[in-house]
């Protein structure tokens, strides 16, 4: 009997040891993070996001990666796929990943197109090593207690300013819709006033337009264009149309000489 027990222990030992070391190799460095070890034990992934939840719409997350010797993972290639397992679909929008150094990767444009159960499927590849983990979010909700597929984030949740600074703060941009108030399914024009951050008009810039509906992952039904500069740094945008009520995001990419930047407006046509 004793022998049998010893044999049992000996057989079990390697598993116990390996299970033990598996845990000791990885450390959760950030208290507030969601922590996962990749399937084959090559990396740990810590996900830092506001209140540990994703919301319907565009999300930004931070990922901190360590390898199994607790070293920062630098120069890895990451893929992040939002996936809805019950529906068997993802989203058409691709997350944008930027390595910040020290094992930190910023992931923007993580689009969650509807409420419900979602997964973020993350693959880490460095040199010849590739490994995967899945973060599950059991019940992603819209911004604030809305029930309908059509409802947009509450007015207070998103910045509806008509004047905003571009992302790199190069330009201060104001839009004026010539259709006021903004309505759906009406083709119309905007006037876009572009100034430098210190208020000088930006003339002769090349401005391109793009728009999309983050909650739905689709773009505009038209291809709007800047057709002319109608005043000093004032550009006419023609062909705008919104096919659904709700939250839309309009991006204007502005290029003047060697400076370029993008400004984003949130709008809620009715």
């Amino acid at each position: 009997m004793k022998l049998l027990f010893s044999a049992f222990l000996i057989v079990l030992m390697p598993f116990m040891v390996s299970a033990d070391t598996d845990h000791s190799k990885f450390t959760q460095h950030y208290k507030e993070s969601l922590f996962k070890i990749t399937e084959n034990g090559h990396f740990s992934v810590e996900m830092v996001l506001k209140e540990k939840v994703l919301q319907v719409g565009k999300n930004a997350i931070n990922l901190i990666l360590h390898d199994n010797k607790d070293r920062d993972v630098v120069g890895a290639t990451l893929t992040v796929i939002p996936w809805m397992p019950d529906m068997g679909h993802g989203v058409s929008e691709q997350p944008v990943i930027e390595e910040k150094g020290g094992g930190l990767y910023k992931v923007k444009n993580v689009v969650i197109s509807m409420s419900g159960r979602w997964e973020l499927r993350i693959t880490v590849a460095r040199d010849a090593t590739e490994d995967t983990t899945v973060f599950e979010f059991k019940d992603i909700k819209k911004g604030k207690g809305h029930h309908h597929a059509m409802s947009a984030p509450a007015a207070g949740d998103i910045d509806l300013s008509v004047t905003r600074l571009s992302h790199k703060k190069l330009f201060s941009v104001t839009y004026e819709s010539l259709l006021d108030p903004l309505r759906i399914n009406r083709i119309h024009s905007w006037k876009l006033t572009v100034k430098t951050a210190d208020g000088q008009p930006v003339t002769g810039a090349t401005v391109t337009v793009d728009g999309d509906m983050p909650e739905h992952g689709h773009g505009l039904p038209t291809q709007p264009e800047v057709t002319q500069e109608v005043g000093q740094g004032v550009y006419l945008v023609e062909g705008l149309k919104f096919s659904m009520p709700g939250w839309w995001v309009m991006d204007f990419h502005i290029q003047k000489n060697d400076q370029e930047d993008t400004v984003t407006f949130n709008i809620q046509p009715k």
Binding site: I187, H188, L220, P221, T222, Q223, P224, E225, E238, G239, K241
Partner: peptide
Amino acid sequence: GELRFIDT
């Protein structure tokens, strides 16, 4: 406008 700015 609908024709000039048609999504192609």
